[in-house]
Computed example of a mutant assay.
Amino acid sequence: MCGDTRSLIHGIINLIVPFFIYDLASLLVGAITAANYNPWLAFWPMTILLWLPFLSDAVCVVVAAVRFQRRGRTRALLGLIFSVGVAALYYMLRFQLHFTLSQLKDMF
């Protein structure tokens, strides 16, 4: 598989990750609390889960930008666009709207 295609696939995966990562972190805290462990044990894993989409977007932006600069392929450009757009989307959902998928179950 070509590196340009990998940049595109990474960008598409970055589109999906922000919707589930916040719920995974809250599930981790709930599981540790239900097992009668100290909730502070989940602090670092939860922090990693919450910042992972930003790290993934940064890696994809750098790799896709280098790929696009060298080869000029549209697939690398699409991966770059998806990752930059998703970074803004994740910021908006996470910090501005405090969005989780668990909020959607109240709507239906």
Rank of each mutant, 00 (worst) to 15 (best):
G72H: 04
V61H: 08
G85M: 02
V66M: 11
W51I: 05
N14C: 09
S102I: 11
L77I: 04
P45F: 03
I13T: 11
M92I: 14
L93C: 12
T47W: 11
A35I: 09
L24S: 00
F68E: 05
T5F: 06
V61S: 06
A64Q: 07
L104K: 03
G3Q: 13
A31K: 15
F68V: 03
V66W: 14
G11V: 02
G79R: 02
M1V: 14
A87C: 13
S83K: 01
L104I: 08
P18G: 01
N36M: 11
A88K: 06
R75P: 00
T74S: 06
L49K: 02
L15N: 09
F99W: 08
A25F: 11
F95T: 10
V61Y: 07
L49W: 05
P39Q: 13
D57P: 01
V29T: 08
V84M: 07
F68Q: 07
N38C: 06
V59K: 08
H98D: 15
Q69I: 11
G72F: 02
A64D: 04
V63M: 09
T100D: 11
L104Q: 08
V61A: 12
D57K: 01
L93W: 01
A35M: 15
V84Q: 04
Q96Y: 11
S7A: 06
V63L: 11
D4Y: 08
